[in-house]
Design a protein around this nucleic acid. Structure first.
Lengths: 263, 263
DNA sequence: GGGGTAAGTTCCAAATAATGAAACTCGATT
DNA sequence: AATCGAGTTTCATTATTTGGAACTTACCCC
């Protein structure tokens, strides 16, 4: 689903973890077997190991497996010490207040967009139910924009992996259309979502780039065709880009605390 | 640290993941070596594999490793499909509103308390910076209360693993004191934190128990000695226990969606 | 209550992958 | 130019994983 299985035993075990997560509900051993490339005994041992390790949790009342609590602890660490998300927090608050629109902060998880933080104009923010969500890279503003600014080889690999499901009439249909769009985004410095994922929903996104030009993540402002249009969003570009630049500066500055003084 | 290493290659790799998370900041390869039981080449391959898999992320600018974004995605799944956290949400909201105090929802992650949700009376709630936090089991209200209601064997295992650091004069000093306290909690049906973790901070906690008597988690109300005292908290017991019971009922009801109709 | 079916678990020889000492590369310092 | 230390690769040895098949429940239907 995400990482190519491989990487020996560890990779295989982690693919099982993904599989369980993908079900979206507690799942029985038989169901896993049915959808797994591994023979029964092998899968059984993986599930045992992962459960032992707290990466899966087993509910003895229903005889089902679900992703385990240890993941929540690890994700807390991941979120807290990624250079991007904690640093971006106050900037998202400010931008959200200033614009009154929904803000997303995203990173790439293999070929998918992963939202790591969000400010919703309307509703109060929701915990894990928001952060951790994933979306397709080829038809979201942040996804396309992050792709556009990656090194060429990396972009190509990811473009290959997209599956191009047509969500709306505006969804880009294939790799050719996507590549053209990426070229345009690279030129402009920002990208749109022109109701490509959901009718009526539009968005504008800018990349967050490190000093060395690496893509750290993406920042987007989402709105609806009821409230504004693409030109309206485009007017926000300077402010959004400025915020992205500030986040990038602070995230890059993150020098890792003092290496022990050299001998 | 958390899961006993063992469980073959997968367990070892996951212990490396824990190690990186434990640093609390991006970490260099040498630093990991220094604190790792594995020889250089072995650790190197683990780190490679985990990075490939997105469980670790490598920052080429600083040559450091940190827990990876894939964890955030998996944790989202873990949180969303655990029977406890999503079901408890509205109840926590209601309890928080009714009491005007800080509420914690916790589960056990091996021998530690893991907070999976929180309602803060004062500040607006914070994303991953709150959920995913861990604390010691032997000197928090939820920790002791969950321990008190586990099967005896399981309780003993966990009691053995506590390290009994003395945070305050009231911190329970050893396994004997803890066992006595657990017996009392089991009798009462609820447990206190009598400034055992932090001076001035008190709390009352009840277990969330499944139909079959299994500990699903713990629910606590935290306050300070400025605002109330143990007797004051004790008066809240009926309301808290009622909430715990409702959460338990709904979480247990979670029958996993229709197995395919039998032949 | 008996017989059947399917889920879940254990076994073990063959196949495969992990191991780690040592040698090597590459950059940065002196 | 020489040195040092971080990071990376190699390869014969060793230990683990593998998976077909047999086994043991648990449940359902008649």
């Amino acid at each position: 689903m995400s990482a190519p299985i491989g990487d020996g035993t560890v990779g295989k075990a982690l693919s099982v973890l993904d599989q369980v997560a993908a079900f979206g509900r507690p799942v029985r051993f038989v169901e896993l077997i049915a959808a797994s490339p591994f023979p029964k005994a092998t899968l059984y041992r993986f599930v045992q190991t992962l459960t032992n390790q707290g990466m899966l949790s087993f509910d003895p009342d229903h005889a089902t497996y679900a992703p385990g609590v240890r993941l929540v602890r690890l994700a807390h660490a991941a979120w807290a010490q990624s250079s991007l998300a904690p640093v971006a927090r106050p900037y998202l608050d400010a931008l959200s207040e200033s614009l009154g629109e929904t803000i997303h902060l995203a990173q790439l998880d293999h070929a998918q967009v992963l939202y790591v933080d969000k400010r919703s104009a309307a509703r109060p923010l929701e915990m894990f139910s928001d952060a951790g969500k994933i979306g397709p890279a080829y038809c979201t503003g942040v996804g396309k924009t992050m792709l556009a600014f990656m090194e060429n080889g990396a972009t190509d690999d990811i473009v290959e992996q997209q599956s191009f499901h047509r969500f709306t009439p505006n969804t880009l249909a294939d790799a050719v259309a996507l590549r053209a769009e990426l070229a345009e985004i690279r030129e402009n410095g920002y990208g749109f979502d022109r109701e490509e994922h959901e009718p009526g929903i539009i968005c504008i996104a800018v990349p967050i780039l490190s000093d060395s030009g690496r893509v750290l993540g993406g920042l987007s402002v989402t709105s609806s065709t009821d409230r504004t249009n693409l030109a309206g969003l485009e007017r926000l570009v300077p402010e959004i880009q400025e915020t992205a630049k500030q986040i990038a500066r602070e995230a890059s500055a993150w020098r890792f605390p003092d290496r022990v003084a050299s001998t």
